[in-house]
Amino acid sequence: MEISLALEEKKITALTGPSGAGKTTLLKQIAGLMMPESGKISFRNVVWLDTEHKIRLPSQVRNIGFVFQDYALFPHMTVRENLHYALPKNGDETVIDQLLESVGLLQLGNRKPYQLSGGQQQRVALARALVRKPDLLLLDEPFNALDHAMRFQLQDLLLKFQREYQFSVIMVTHDIGEMFRMSDQVLIMENGKILQSGKPSDVYLNEQSGNDGILMYGKVLTCRQEEDVLIIDALIDNKIRKLKLPIHMHQKLDIGAHFTLHYSLDSPVLQIISKA
């Protein structure tokens, strides 16, 4: 892995790319849970890691929050105990009630994690990561296992918290809608390198597409040619839609490929984001 990047503070950065690209590794290295062979990480002028000078700040003092893919809630503790565990010594206990209320789980504080639904567990994980008021929140595919409605709800919740507490966020996600909705910056990783970075619109939208028209993100389900028209069945916004495009745009699309489609006044522009 070879990465060099600088992120703006108090912004949301989305990290994306195919499996095995090194997204989780990067997140864990930032958190201090994994050591890179060599490198330097600093946050707000504090050096967290500098292998050359043998500096390594442990995870415990980096003041980060980490939301794991499997939530990592402590199974033997109740919801409230999970949050309480995160509280520093002599910390203000009222923050636990505030957070539980914000995530709508005040009534379920005495339940064990296994008695909660996936969405509820995710909310506990988010609340627990915020108990220490982190400067940087790292999320590893946080909303992956949730249905559409729950995803939206939790995205809103995260946005609300981020505005309120003003922390920086790096989140791994594959959902392009999520990137546009939440992030200020997108990083696309592949084979341990950052391929592209920038605002979601800069990264995903072709320059030619201009600013007018409608933008759609989707996934190819079927693709066939009929005379000079390409007919695509695509999953767009969780609904199956049929698209007819001039053949000159693309000869053939791989099933499962992700794309953006920009319909402007002049002509539609289709851009393939990732192959299936």
């Binding site: 958190a31 415990q60 980060i64 929050g65 794991f68 499997d70 565990y85 108990v131 220490r132």
Partner: peptide
């Protein structure tokens, strides 16, 4: 035990 339990505890500031 999943490694994430330990890791979560470390990121929550625990030794």
């Amino acid at each position: 035990l999943p490694a994430s339990l330990r890791e979560a505890s470390y990121t929550l500031g625990k030794s």
